[in-house]
Design a binder for these strands. Structure first.
Lengths: 156, 156
DNA sequence: GATGAAATCCCTGTAAT
DNA sequence: ATTACAGGGATTTCATC
């Protein structure tokens, strides 16, 4: 499952924690010494804070953001998927197994799943969706631009 | 703008590059020495490859993945936004200015924007959407679970 | 032209204040 | 939380294939 337990009490962050998270969001591979300089603390204290944020579960992981276009994924689509009666679990499995689905949320409402697809071509869209359309109705939107790229929520 | 130019020729990755990206996706703060061990290369060669992937634009940035629940965002919503005539740019600005919108794509089709919201409560949903509903029709879906969390596309 | 090896330098983590 | 110190990692240079 993708669910992890949320802490009973949300973590309370001070100004330094917020600055630290922002710095890590901008460049997660910065040395602790540099992070320390940015937040105005000593290196050991800074390292300790990073560890604490990880232990608290605030930081899930440090990761890399890939540019899909640099890999030849010229197209991005957002697809709403409404499984036919009795096909819900199967549809979920199919989506999970197709790596071009880079993200999928199960949501309330008529459309059960909302997914993001990376594609090399418009032909590939058809090819991939055909594996889903036997078991679900789909509704596709092609991404034209991204006014807000994944960003941190307010940390207040 | 959020647009950056895609390279004319997509980068071609060998097996080592793919392993490297996967390792970085799993933990972007791993020392180069550890990455080198994982991909079976020397540390300098590994560091060089990481630099090349950045220069090629394959790696956009190293970043941190936050658990919104650990910060008290108990709710996640995906909202489709269809601006009223003449309100498109204003709606885009409003969305960009509200930090609880952590992601927003402009798409083809009837609904112009598809956005992701982090929320502390269901009341906050109303509060935030009210800033949009004067200028757009919205359609909200609450995230119940995430079968596929952001993952790398196929690197083949 | 790119990879591996060795030396220097810097960073990280520990312990003590 | 900082400082000092010891250990390990990173980067540069150089030699190699």
């Amino acid at each position: 499952m993708t669910k992890r337990l949320a802490p009973a009490t949300p973590a309370t962050l001070d100004e330094t924690d917020r600055a630290l998270l922002a710095a890590l969001a901008a460049d997660a591979r910065q040395p602790v010494s540099e992070l320390a300089r940015l937040v105005g603390l000593s290196a050991p204290s800074t390292a300790e804070r990073v560890r604490r944020l990880e232990a608290q579960g605030v930081i899930e992981r440090f990761t890399v953001q890939i540019d899909p276009r640099a890999l030849g994924f010229t197209l991005q689509a957002i697809v709403r998927v409404k499984p036919l009666p009795g096909q819900l679990h199967l549809v979920e499995d199919v989506i999970r197994r197709i790596p071009e689905f880079v993200e999928c949320d199960k949501v309330t409402g008529d459309d059960c799943f909302i997914c993001r697809l990376y594609l090399h071509s418009i032909e590939q869209l058809d090819e991939i969706l055909s594996k889903v359309t036997e078991r679900a109705e789909t509704s596709t939107a092609i991404v034209k631009s991204t006014p807000v790229a994944r960003r941190l929520p307010p940390l207040g």
